[in-house]
Simulated scan of single mutants.
Amino acid sequence: MLTLGDLERVAPALLAHRSATARPVDWELLRTDLGITFPSDYREYVDHYPALSYDDFMMIVVPEPGNESGYARGAFGTLEIMTRLAERNMTEDYTFHPHEGGLFPWGESNEGDLFFWRKNGPDPDRWPVVVHTSNGDWWEHEGGLVSLMVGLIDGSVEHLGLPPEPGPNPTVDLMVPASDSQG
């Protein structure tokens, strides 16, 4: 399994945003509210990084310490939309959390692409990533979130249905919450 260090190696601009200490996310509250235990590569990422954009295209959605309930609301909102699409047979037979084998969202792009884990067993570190592109493609990557990110950046994972971003040596920018960007 690839590590956070592998992602930092291919995306060195990420390091400017790394917290020196672990961010105090309440993982137990999230586990209780959402009914899942998150993969360890995601927990390590969130422990050290806020919401960031890669090449002004792709975002890894992260809970903010003290606003874990806002993260849960956002996840449930995405799941509600995707469940409605599944009811219309628009999700290639994928189901969504809380169903066994259901997808749970972890990222998105500014073009409407969505990134999920497929909860295919009790070990979240073995959950594959599922990509749903804005043009309707669905595909899986057997590695986790960090593995997919490293592969998209270094070119070892094909960008099936995605633009070339994030690409080699991506820009990494802090995502500004909507409430903070209003004047």
Results as ranks from 00 to 15, higher is better:
M1T: 12
M1P: 14
M1C: 03
L4T: 03
L4V: 04
D6W: 02
D6P: 09
L7F: 12
E8P: 00
R18S: 10
S19Q: 08
S19C: 07
T21P: 00
T21N: 04
A22N: 13
R23H: 02
R23V: 08
P24E: 11
D26A: 08
L29I: 00
T32C: 03
L34F: 03
G35I: 04
G35D: 09
T37S: 13
D41L: 03
R43T: 15
Y45M: 09
D47E: 14
D47R: 08
H48E: 02
P50L: 10
D56N: 14
D56S: 14
I60F: 08
V61C: 07
V62L: 04
P63R: 05
E64C: 09
P65V: 11
N67Y: 12
E68L: 04
A72L: 04
A72R: 09
R73A: 13
A75E: 06
A75N: 07
F76R: 13
T78D: 13
E80L: 11
I81M: 07
M82K: 15
R88P: 00
R88E: 10
N89S: 14
M90S: 10
T91V: 05
D93V: 01
D93K: 15
T95G: 15
F96V: 01
F96K: 05
P98L: 06
P98T: 06
H99P: 04
G102R: 07
G102H: 08
F104D: 03
F104M: 12
F104P: 06
W106F: 15
G107C: 04
E108V: 04
S109D: 14
S109T: 15
S109H: 07
N110V: 10
N110M: 05
F115D: 02
F115L: 15
F115E: 03
W117K: 12
W117I: 05
R118Q: 15
K119L: 11
P122W: 01
D123H: 01
W127Y: 02
H132S: 12
T133R: 02
D137H: 14
D137F: 11
E140D: 07
G143A: 10
G144R: 08
L145E: 03
L145K: 07
L148W: 04
L148I: 06
L148N: 02
V150S: 08
V150E: 11
V150Y: 06
G151W: 03
V157S: 00
E158I: 14
E158D: 13
L160D: 10
L162Y: 08
P164D: 13
P164I: 13
E165W: 13
V172L: 10
V172M: 13
V172P: 04
L174T: 09
M175K: 10
S179K: 10
S181H: 07
